[in-house]
Every structure is written in structure tokens, then in C-alpha cells.
Amino acid sequence: MPHQCTNCGRTFADGSKEMLSGCPDCGGNKFQFRPADADDRDPPRDAEPPDPPDPAGTAAGGSVARTVGSAASTVRNLVDGGSGSTSDPGAGVGADTDPGFDPDSDPDPEPGSDPGTPERTGAPDTEDSRSPDPSPGESASADARAEDSAQADARSQVVSPEELPPSGPSAEESAGDPTAAGAGPEDVPERDPDPPDLAELRAELNDQFESIKILEPGQYELNLMELYDREEYIIALQEDGRYSIQVPERWHD
């Protein structure tokens, strides 16, 4: 039972369409994927390499040799990769009102999420729409048994565009854009091994401001990685955008 509702624990067959409109039992819209074994064909993994290229991390992260799992290493790369950009402690604090990346404006910051549609359905959904060809793909011969009845059923029926809710355009976009087949973030499942999620997160963070952005007095956006990464830290903010920082006792070059 590869799919499981993270809310009530109900399980679903791989490719099951039941999940597409939320868990029938509890209405939950987050599902985790539990492959029966490591070789199981998993469309999201096909769509996204498990270990995405990481130029910033590999360039700057060589000094750290610890391996504490993929999620941790990705974050570490993120930490290391960002350490070179903190030359000006004041750069992040200012009255810049560019909304920029707003992690909290979306109630669910996971990539590809859409409050109106089930989280975990991106893969089967987009697969349906962009590859109506019944051939299951490159790994089909090895994993023909993975094509269970639920998958076959889901594959056999392609939803018509009129049935798609206007707020859930991912399938239409994927269908119209062949390049989306490779690495669209909307294909990234919520609970799959973390690298795609964190790679996306890192890209978003890279686009963020430095440590603290003052939208207006009393409204702040914080870049947690940057705050974590810097040796000095902000101890007092002023309304006019000025601030006090505490510098480390021994300042490194």
C-alpha cells in the first residue's frame, strides 16, 4: 500500500484516484508514499533525480564530511553555500518593501501544494495528462508488476480539461509544456525523500533577502538560514531600520 493518508493513516494502492479529491475517510489532503521496495517504480523519482545538482553546496561544502542523512546534508550545503554572502551585516536590514519571497503567505509552503487539491496527487495527475501513452516508461519491463489495477485504471482515464478546477492548473501546464516533464517542482511529492523538497527550498531561500526585512514597522520577514548562519546577531531593531548587532568576541576575517 504505497500511499498513506498522513492524517488518518488510510492506505491507497499506487496510482489510486481516490486520493485525488482528498482522503475519503477524513478529507485529509496530504499523503505519503511508501514504496513496497526500493526498486518500485515511482513516477516522482523518475521525474526528479534523487540527488539534484548542487553547485553552491559542492563548491563550498567540501570542508564538512559528516553525513547525517540527505535532509541534513542538503541543509548543511545550504548553510555552507550561503556563508560567503554575509559580508555586509547591514545589507539585510532596511526599508526595502519588495515583497519578494513570502514563505508564510501560502498557508502550506511545500512546493507544488495547492490548498484546493490533494498534495500527493501531482505525480499521477500530471503523468496522466502528459503521457496518455499506455507504455509505462523506461522501467516498465523490470517493474511490470508495479502496475497494479489502480494505476492501470487511473492511466486509462484522462480527465477532460473542463473538469479541472481553475485553481489547479498544474496538469494543464505540464501538458502544454514538455519541459515540465523533467523536473517541475509541482511534481515533487510532499513526503518523498527530502532532497527535491529541500532543493526547492534552497532555491527559494537563495532568492530571499538577507536576514531580516522590514516591510513596515511591526512587520518583518526573517531569513532563518541567514540568521543561523551569521556569527554576529541582531539584538535590537529600530523603527527607522537601524539596528544593533552583537559581534563575536573574536572576529574572523
Binding site: T6, K30, R66, V68, G69, A71, A72, S73, T74, V75, R76, V79, P103, D108, P109, E110, E190, D194, D197, L198, L201, L224, M225, Y228
Partner: peptide, 18 residues
Amino acid sequence: DPFTQVNTMLIGIIESQD
């Protein structure tokens, strides 16, 4: 809901610190 950016990021940082 525990699936948030803040939780993922902080747990990741904590893990990276061992």
C-alpha cells in the same frame, strides 16, 4: 500541520549540527 518550511528547516539544521 507539522509539514511547514520552518519545521523542515529547523530540524534540518539540528540534524546538520548532529
